[in-house]
Amino acid sequence: MDKNFAARRRRDLIIAAVLAALAALAPLFIKDVYVQNILILTLMYAALSQSWNILSGYCGQISLGHALYFGIGAYTTELLFTKFGVLPWFGMLGGGVIAALIAMGLGYPFFRLRGHYFVIATIVIAEIGLLLFQNWEWAGAAMGITIPIRGDSWLKFQFLRTKLPYFYFALALCCLAWFVTWWLEDSKWGFWWRAVKDNPEAAESLGVVVFNSKMGAAAVSAFLVAIGGAFYAQFLAYIDPESVMGFQFSLLMALPAVLGGIGTLWGPVLGAAILIPMTELTRSYIGGSGRGVDLIVYGTLIVLISLALPQGLVSLFSRSRAKGVTR
């Protein structure tokens, strides 16, 4: 058993390295800006969903308010940059730290709540954040912030002529989120989280400090999501509250993990790799009419996948793998 587990983990790491290397070479063959754009978004959502999965999948605390941390990452970076001239790299880290601190601050009252009460509380807190930013004059209110253009540079993490640097950053972030998950899976924390998810009372009685392990998951998850938010803001060069803190982001972060396989290592990546290109393609090829056909197709697919594969797309792989073993 132990040997299998270790072997599986080693194999996961090798597969991830191969995939990352292949992805890194992709821009050599894909020159089309539109396709590059889709790849960047796919990698970003994979990273976000992977981060969401840490708290909601592994630790079982379903959050539909992660847009709050995404928005905080975006706003911290851009406010520091436009108001004080702080480089986005520091803003990014700052945003991550602030988001993690807020997640822990909110954790104190929130983690006492169970089930639907918790989920609704996470939605509500993100909505409060959204409304506050929409009314915060200094932060641009509902008009948002346009990031001033200072020319292409890694220092200011700003590129106009090419999207490739964004691509490599999104890839790096995705790898980071994946690696953190991979590493945590086999750590003390990973085991605690799964225990907390399955049966908090039993976990507590066996000496797991349930509250602290939830806090840890929330902090890691919020930090990574905020980095994603900072990236997204630099990528778009324009942010407003609705476009970085809207409820749809909370759902879009959760969706790849749920469709791919919630609480699994590969679920978010797999889910994002299928969902995001699908979303973008339906939007640009059949959404042009503005008549909502893209929504109909997209929604139907979500209904079908979630009903047909409640454990996500990864269950397809593990099923065939299980068969192989018995044979």
């Binding site: 379903i62 197709v297 929604g299 209904v303 409640p310």
Partner: peptide
């Protein structure tokens, strides 16, 4: 659904909501 019943409910009804909005637009 035996696993993740809550998430399956959330996202199947969320998908339905998107379809209904699309149909309304259409």
């Amino acid at each position: 659904a035996k696993a993740n019943a809550g998430m399956v409910q959330i996202f199947s009804t969320f998908g339905l909501a998107i379809v209904m909005r699309g149909l309304a637009q259409f």
